[in-house]
Design a binder for these strands. Structure first.
Lengths: 211, 211
DNA sequence: CTCCGTATTGGACTAAAGTCCAATAGCAAT
DNA sequence: ATTGCTATTGGACTTTAGTCCAATACGGAG
């Protein structure tokens, strides 16, 4: 399915010497590394789809590290962020961690600390990506449902009988059976139990009877 | 069901004056507050079941704040922790946040900061408690199943037919029907769909056909 | 206009599940 | 030994669900 899945580490720091030494370090540990000397340059890049992580300097001209984290956090399949900084304080680090950073390293730091953080961040990225792929697969299959089938689905996963659904939608019970069969086939499941689990993953709310 | 659910804030700090002023502050905001001047004293207390949070000094004689957090983290229904400290650094705050602290405030801090943190922590505690209650409810109902019924359940939520389950267990299909009915009744669900959702919440793995 | 997908319905039939009823055997506690 | 819970089975019956088959109506694309 995928050709390769080499993790990529993005280094964003306005200090060229920091970039350079980080690149060398990361490459010596077998990572593909790419440097950007500002948040703006990083954002110009085409959205990255693979696994990896971002090493981000807090203080930079223009868009700062924290602001960039906010921007990236809005896209769902974002890469884990490791902060590095020369002039950080506790409130700053706490805020970054609250927003989901995987680590926050004050300069100077040991090579080993940085690599440890990168290993963990990349691992996290892999997991995010896997569950994201699963979800996309699911959504693609769900897109193949007709409007009517999408309408019937919440009733089915709520456990209503065909007869009850038919009454709700004012159509024949037979028709519900057909929709049901189509849904099961399109989503590739062999039982209502599997269907329910699928729908849970895709966050499809079952029809609530108390309404 | 519950009589009251007044949130309780536990303050653990070896500095008596800090305890005192925090107690006054918290009470002025309507919280019930209890002070402990060491981690050991706090641990002597009977396990607390209600909602609330813990305000914890990092540096204390004997068991330190971070060590106490580790101890508390092992019990599932633990209270959210807010750290306060006079001599903290970034790595310390990052580690605390990684371990799930809701906040980390260096002294001196504003009253408002502390209260904000407490409000959020208590809110989090409420949510933890609610989902924990739900889980306990579920487990109690699951405990009422007989061994045989527990054995049949994974097959049902995997979507197998009664006939197939009967073959697997080498018993009559009829018997499976009876078990199925008993399970549904004991767990208080009216359809397989609900049963599957319940089992998901309780982390019951469906029987895997590929084995 | 014709073709195709969608939504809808119908009949006949099979298979599965649920609902009454009642019964037996093992096993542990009283 | 009696009681009660668990696991097991049986028959008869009703309700649902799924599976063949085929058909009509509508709207958009070619």
């Amino acid at each position: 399915m995928m050709t390769e899945d080499e993790p990529v580490v993005f280094v964003i720091d306005d200090d060229a010497s920091v970039c350079k030494s980080l690149m060398r370090l990361l490459r010596s540990f077998g990572y593909e590394a790419r440097a950007f000397h500002s948040a703006e340059h990083f954002l110009e890049q085409v959205p990255f789809q693979g696994t990896g992580c971002i090493i981000l300097d807090v203080r930079m001209p223009g868009i700062g590290g924290m602001a960039l984290q906010d921007k990236l956090g809005k896209t769902e399949d974002s890469l884990p962020v490791i902060f590095i900084t020369g002039h950080g304080d506790i409130p700053m680090s706490v805020q970054a961690m609250k927003k989901g950073a995987t680590d926050f390293l004050p300069k100077p730091f040991e090579d080993g600390q940085l690599i440890d953080a990168v290993v963990k961040a990349v691992e996290k990225s892999r997991q995010i990506r896997m569950s994201c792929n699963e979800l996309n697969n699911l959504r693609m299959r769900l897109d193949r449902l007709t409007p009517r089938e999408r309408e019937v689905l919440p009733y089915i996963i709520a456990g209503l009988l065909n007869k009850q659904i038919a009454f709700k939608l004012n159509i024949a019970e037979k028709t519900i059976k057909v929709h049901r069969a189509h849904i099961m086939e399109k989503l590739g499941v062999g039982s209502v139990a599997e269907l329910v689990r699928l729908a849970e993953k895709a966050n499809i709310e079952p029809y609530d009877q108390r309404s």
